[in-house]
Write a protein that binds this DNA or RNA. Structure first.
Length: 321
DNA sequence: ATCTGTTTATCAGGCG
DNA sequence: CGCCTGATAAACAGAT
């Protein structure tokens, strides 16, 4: 939708690659997955530059979706109307971006098929993810209101170090959207407070909006943006609390938080049980307040925490340069 | 017909 | 210079 008067300064090409833009779109959705058309919409809503030459960039974007292993397709239910599949981020691509920044991706995400436990193909990954999602749902059904955390690879992935690059999706989006329900964005991450470099990062943060012609006005707080943003849908781990309901079947997408720091590695034992028991201190996901508690306390940004999440994921794939 | 998804190819820019 | 990443174009197949 055109915003007369603002395009004059907002038609510059954003400094993000298509991969970044796509990842942003996916990350910004409550379900952590979007159909192609929604990805288009997200990008066009946010970045006026992409309201033109749509054929060109959309072709490129589709190319990226198919070409990069970091994007996986989540098939629609047979009884679910609509074209195309949903697209999600591969669970292990969290460290794709340097320091979690969408400005630069240093490592190319590549799925390896060496690991027998690892889903070799995106489709398998999706299947695996959905299976876990189902298990989680089952646990939810059995256990009441509290969702168990996602399997280990999710733990810490979104909250490993406490540091969030200013261009990380959490930061970008957090500044950019009002929560539909007027909810604060505490669900995302305790980001700004965690900045270790207030001088630099603060500057960058404030530049968003003021100095970003690529996006809309101050932090893209665009009321017109129909984004089904996280809001109260996230647990502290970035786990969407709102299950997907595809044609009656509940197939929650797997949240794939962009990890702020490159995973320095981890070789943890293979993925344990799909659903680890509730960790002590793990967030009662449905409560915004408790999610805050969890983000600020159960994940005290220690290196060891950093290893917890991505570790298992690293078993599935690696980022190859 | 249009949209979605895959694949191949080419080119530019950054980096070691 | 070679390699890698990203952007773009294009052809094509399949789904809706």
């Amino acid at each position: 939708m055109p915003r007369p008067g603002r395009n004059t300064y907002s038609d510059q090409k954003p400094p993000y690659s298509y991969i970044s833009l796509t990842a942003m779109a996916i990350q910004s959705s409550a379900e952590k997955m979007l159909p192609l058309s929604e990805i288009y919409k997200f990008i066009m809503d946010r970045f006026p530059y992409y309201r033109e030459n749509t054929q060109r960039w959309q072709n490129s974007l589709r190319h990226n979706l198919s070409f990069n292993d970091c994007f996986i397709k989540i098939p629609r239910r047979p009884d679910q109307p609509g074209k195309g599949s949903f697209w999600a981020l591969h669970p292990s691509c969290g460290d794709m971006f340097e320091n979690g920044s969408f400005l630069r991706r240093r490592k190319r995400f590549k799925v390896l098929k060496a690991d027998p436990l690892a889903p070799a193909k995106p489709a398998e990954a999706a299947q695996y993810l959905q299976q876990q999602a189902k298990l989680r749902l089952s646990a939810l059904a059995a256990g009441g209101t509290h969702l168990p955390p996602m399997s280990s690879y999710n733990l810490g992935v979104s909250q490993p170090s406490g540091f969030k690059h200013p261009f990380a999706i959490e930061n970008i989006i957090a500044r950019e959207y009002k929560m539909p329900g007027g909810l604060a964005f505490s669900a995302v991450q305790p980001v700004p407070a965690a900045y270790p470099l207030p001088n630099q990062l603060g500057a960058v943060g404030s530049s968003i909006g003021a100095g970003w012609p690529h996006v809309y006005g101050s932090g893209m707080l665009d009321p017109a943006a129909p984004l089904s943003m996280a809001g109260g849908d996230y647990s502290a781990y970035g786990v969407p609390l709102k299950p997907l309901c595809h044609g009656g079947q509940t197939l929650p997408a797997i949240p794939v938080p962009i990890k702020p720091t490159p995973a320095a590695v981890p070789a943890l034992p293979a993925l344990p049980a799909p659903i680890p028991p509730l960790l002590p201190g793990s967030p009662p996901a449905l409560s915004p307040t408790s999610s805050h508690t969890a983000t600020s306390q159960s994940s005290p940004a220690t290196p060891s925490d950093t290893l917890t999440g991505p570790a298992a994921a690293a078993l599935h794939s690696v980022a190859v340069h």
